[in-house]
Design a protein around this nucleic acid. Structure first.
Length: 551
RNA sequence: GUGCCCGUAGCUCAAUUGGAUAGAGCAUCAGCCUUCUAAGCUGAGGGUUACUGGUUCGAGUCCAGUCGGGCAUGCCA
């Protein structure tokens, strides 16, 4: 519909004799008096053409030629906007398409044949997932869904490291709790993991081995058990939120020598050295980021000989390019903000298309408990567990809470409010609209033998009230919303949109009797309800929430 | 100190990325169920968009500065 208008305007510009590279943009005016669509092209071009915008608009309008039955009225408004009023029949023709395409409405092919990778969660197995982690998890999952809707072949990846220092502390923590369980008196340092799950793991070890592990020299048994236990817990939590990864990438792989005897890490060092971005001093190997205008170089290999996290990170991203991904999306929290610019610079130096890496950084989650803001730390064990939250409010509300705010704003998770399970909960508003439609359609089947048939959608032409037209027009925006949300890596746009759809539907439902209308109007309204349900379902699928048929 | 994010109604947040009279939810107040699900709808009140200046037809949005909050600034990840 927008494309059609753009096309007509471009032809009009040519007819007026204006050659320009400025793209024509179509907007939806904020107020309905201003029509269904508008363009600011006259305002934009007035400067270029050295003329008055209203005058230019006037001239342009007289050169626009629409197909009959599409645009009812065009007018100039304000400083030089051109507003278009569509005819109801044009709106309904487009709406028929929604019904025809069904669940594939909103699925596009702009990403067809391309591979995208979305990396998210990526928590090391040092403890169960906290509420803070949930935000990135749901954000990443929705972004992956959006890319899928664009037609991409999407891989959902989880990157983790089970070899670092934190894992050693974890193993040591478990060992101490185990010794405690065996009856020893131990001093438990506060640098260690305090959470209750450490005791659970220790208990498990004690059940299996008694006190046979007391004399073990190495931490291996403790580490492995802990990792298994915690990973199972993490995966289970993610599963409850309907989050499933296709691939778990262990950082360890990057240390292992390949066929040529070199590890991925080695190869990065070598390649950077060749480009002149490696320097060695203070017993360490550095990425010469000072050459890129940064204040300090960054350590790649510590004086102990071990790589710092930055090196495998770069090597990891190289694998993403080597694996053929054209779109690389990383989702992580604000605490990793300093990490990715180095990675991007490094892969650029190595000759990859660094601009294909997109980063979605979500701001932190604070939780409000009894009016008090609590900051969370896994190590201190005071973090609220994601699992507990899901127990309290359910997976749908949990997911929606995390993405109903833009990722750039701090999310204040009022745990008390979320636990209330009351109507305050925004997920109900959306789901209720869906349930209402389901119930309506069921009743229509039972009482009027209504059976949806694509041959009948022409009946939509009977709709003409403002409520009906507004809803119909909004339903057609789904593909555009998906594109915007994907481009901005911002599923919140989808939440907002679905809220609008639900609102417009409730209003339509309130004002327009459906089952009590005459047959043609009744059917027309049922098809509108059907199309609404379809759009809600397609949107819910991207957000990963369920579409209940009854509430 | 420096870099990134944020500052919008009493509270939590939007605002089509520079557009027309800044909008939703919660909370408050007033209406709407003998009629398709009232988890809904309608209406009211509530704002110097932190502050100051600048850019232009036009600024919550862009630029500079000030104030306030978060994160980062490790040979931790």
């Amino acid at each position: 519909m927008q494309e059609y208008l753009i096309d007509v305007i471009q032809k009009g510009l040519k007819a007026v004799g204006i050659e320009t590279s400025t793209p024509v943009t179509i907007e939806k005016p904020a107020r309905k008096e201003f029509g269904d669509f508008s363009t600011n092209i006259a305002l934009v071009l007035a400067g270029e053409c050295k003329t008055n915008p209203r005058k230019l608009a006037q001239e342009l309008i007289s050169h626009l030629s629409f197909r009959p039955g599409t645009v009812g009225k065009t007018e100039i408004a304000g400083p030089g906007f051109i507003n278009f009023h569509l005819t109801p029949s044009f709106i309904m023709q487009s709406l028929e398409q929604v019904i025809r395409e069904g669940e594939s409405f909103g699925r596009m092919c702009s990403g067809k044949g391309q591979k995208a990778i979305v990396e998210y969660v990526s928590a090391n197995p040092t403890g169960p997932l906290t509420i803070g982690r949930g935000r990135g998890g749901v954000l990443g999952d929705c972004i992956a869904n959006l890319y899928e809707a664009l037609g991409y072949d999407v891989t959902r990846e989880y990157y983790f490291n089970d070899a670092g220092r934190q894992m050693k502390i974890l193993a040591e923590s478990v060992r101490l709790r185990y010794l405690e369980r065996c009856g020893d008196t131990v001093e438990f340092p506060d640098t260690h993991y305090q959470g209750p799950y450490i005791r659970d793991i220790a208990e498990k070890l004690y059940e299996h081995h008694g006190d046979a592990l007391k004399e073990h020299e190495t931490l291996d048994e403790f580490k492995q058990t802990a990792e298994q236990f915690i990973f199972a817990s993490i995966k289970n939590t993610l599963h409850r939120l309907n989050i499933h990864h296709d691939s778990f990438f262990n950082e360890h792989k990057l240390y292992q020598p390949g066929e040529n005897g070199k590890s991925a890490n080695d190869e990065v060092i070598e390649a950077l050295k060749e480009k002149g971005f490696i320097s060695e001093y203070d017993g360490a190997v550095w990425f010469s980021t000072t050459k890129l205008g940064q204040e300090k170089d960054k350590v790649l290999i510590k004086s102990s000989g071990e790589p710092s996290y930055r090196l495998p990170d770069i090597a990891y991203h190289v694998t993403k390019f080597e694996r053929g991904f054209s779109d690389i999306v990383n989702v992580f929290g604000a605490d990793h903000i300093d990490e990715y610019p180095d990675v991007v610079e490094a892969v650029r130096i190595l000759g990859y298309e660094a601009e294909n890496i997109k980063v979605a950084i979500n701001q932190f989650v604070t939780t409000t408990v009894n009016g008090e803001t609590v900051k969370m730390s896994t190590r201190k064990g005071n973090a609220d567990l994601l699992d507990d939250l899901i127990d309290d409010v359910g997976a749908d509300a949990t997911r929606l809470f995390f993405i109903m705010r833009s990722k750039d704003s701090h999310l204040n998770f009022d745990v008390e409010l979320a636990k209330k399970q009351s109507r305050d909960n925004p997920v109900f508003y959306l789901q209720y609209a869906h349930a209402r439609i389901c119930s309506l359609l069921k009743m229509a089947e039972r009482e009027t033998d209504f059976i949806a048939s694509s041959a009948e959608t022409g009946l939509l032409q009977n709709l003409e009230s403002p409520h009906e037209l507004q809803l119909s027009l909004a339903l057609q925006e789904l593909p555009e919303v998906i594109q915007t949300a994907a481009r901005l890596l911002e599923p919140q746009k989808m939440v907002d949109y679905l809220h609008t759809i639900a609102e417009l539907f409730h209003r339509f439902y309130q004002e327009c009797p459906i089952l009590k209308s005459d047959e043609e109007l009744r059917k027309a309204r049922l098809y509108l309800a059907l199309a609404t349900r379809q759009v809600l379902q397609n949107g819910f699928r991207i957000l990963g929430i369920t579409a209940p048929e009854a509430m």
